[in-house]
Amino acid sequence: MQRRGFMKAAVVGAGSVALTFTLGREALAYPAQSGASPYGGLQAADANGLMLPKGFTSRVVARSGQVVGATKHVWHGAPDGGACFADGSGWIYVSNAELGKGAGGVSAVKFDGAGNITGAYPILSGTTDNCAGGASPWNTWISCEEHNKGLCWETDPWGVKPAVSHEAMGVFNHEAAAFDPDRKVVYLTEDEPDGGFYRYTPNAWGNLSAGKLEVLTTDLNWAAVKPKGQDCRKQVNNMYVFNGGEGAYYRNNICYFTTKGDDKVWAYNAATNQLATVYDNDTTANAPLTGVDNITGDPHVGDLFVAEDGGDMEICVITPNDVIAPFVKIVGQDGSEIAGVAFNPAGTRMYFSSQNGTTGTDGGGITYEVTGPFRRSL
């Protein structure tokens, strides 16, 4: 594909016709190529097993099966998707538990303005395989269940309001949710080899209990689907098929999302109704990113950060200058995956988890914080 080549409506089946279309600086990396990181090369692993750029440090926030800091809350196993929420001068980091048979849920860690842990508590329990999700503009966390009868659960990061499920958002193998406040819709990914990319339009913005669910088609239209009953991905013959939908992140008219089956990062431009390949492991020379999974964005300069499920256990940065490079590498944890990448509101601290840690088991999860000179400008 040509650089910054967008896929428009001339599509047949799962194939596509690439058309050249140049965007301004706000459009990130189409397609990204390997290059030097803006943060420099990775240093030797620190005491926590993290290889980081010069000037960055790490700490362990929580370990599965152990009490968090000076709180009484025991951290969950298999930590997965996560997000941060402002809390006065501090913030809250929420984390899913990708555990089966009703053992899943979500926990939260509260920090003060100096980054000290001041609390930890559960905000959802009794669910199954809570994988990724998304933060709403009204400060709730949507925790998505990754199984064929999975639901989207809306949770309160402060743990005050009870969690509630929203069947109208679809009953399927959910992965992530990304909120588009400009069009007042929610984009949803599906973790299936023949999965869809969905758009949910609530009847009232701020209330997810009722609305319209649609799936993207091969001609880049949106077709209505019934949220339950027949499999959502089997209701529309010309559904655009995505191979293993994973993370999703919205910024300035564009929803970025990943597919693990073909190691791609996509960009759906809702303003122009165009679809682009931001990163393609098959076409990038010396490709550093495999096992494409969780994705988030830097709040200052528009860098994307993409985590690996396996691969080299790295989080890679994709810059607006079309460069992709490793930002952090976890060593000695090859039986794990990286998930839950999120920034605190100031963009000075990054959080993420190694789901299975050094043991390679659900009970070995480790949640990290990385602090350092994150970019403020290009």
Rank of each mutant, 00 (worst) to 15 (best):
G195Q: 11
G196V: 12
G196W: 05
G196Y: 06
G196C: 14
F197A: 03
F197W: 07
F197C: 08
Y198L: 15
Y198E: 04
R199L: 13
Y200M: 11
Y200C: 09
Y200K: 08
T201W: 04
P202H: 08
N203K: 14
N203Y: 09
N203V: 11
A204F: 06
W205S: 12
W205A: 11
W205G: 09
G206Q: 11
S209T: 14
S209C: 05
S209L: 05
S209Y: 03
A210K: 15
A210E: 13
A210I: 11
G211S: 11
G211N: 08
G211L: 07
G211I: 07
K212D: 09
L213C: 05
L213T: 02
L213F: 01
V215C: 03
V215Y: 02
V215D: 02
L216E: 02
L216N: 01
T217R: 08
T217L: 12
T217V: 13
T218W: 02
T218S: 15
D219A: 12
D219Q: 14
N221M: 11
N221G: 15
N221V: 01
W222R: 04
W222Y: 12
A223Q: 03
A224E: 10
A224Y: 01
A224D: 05
G229D: 01
G229H: 03
G229F: 04
G229A: 09
Q230M: 12
Q230I: 09
Q230W: 00
D231Y: 00
C232W: 02
C232Y: 00
C232I: 11
K234S: 13
V236T: 08
V236I: 15
N237Y: 00
N238G: 05
M239H: 06
M239K: 10
M239R: 07
Y240I: 05
Y240T: 07
Y240H: 12
N243L: 13
G244F: 05
G245E: 04
G247M: 10
A248Y: 03
A248K: 08
A248C: 12
Y249V: 06
Y250M: 02
Y250C: 01
R251M: 05
N253D: 10
N253A: 12
N253K: 15
C255I: 01
Y256N: 03
F257W: 04
F257L: 02
T258V: 14
T258N: 15
T258Q: 10
T259F: 00
T259G: 01
T259W: 00
T259R: 00
D263H: 13
V265M: 09
V265A: 06
W266H: 10
W266F: 11
A267L: 04
Y268K: 10
Y268T: 03
A270Q: 07
A270N: 06
A271I: 06
T272N: 13
N273A: 12
Q274H: 12
Q274P: 00
L275V: 03
A276V: 01
T277H: 08
V278A: 08
Y279C: 10
Y279N: 08
D280S: 13
D280Q: 10
N281S: 14
D282A: 15
D282H: 14
T283W: 10
T283H: 13
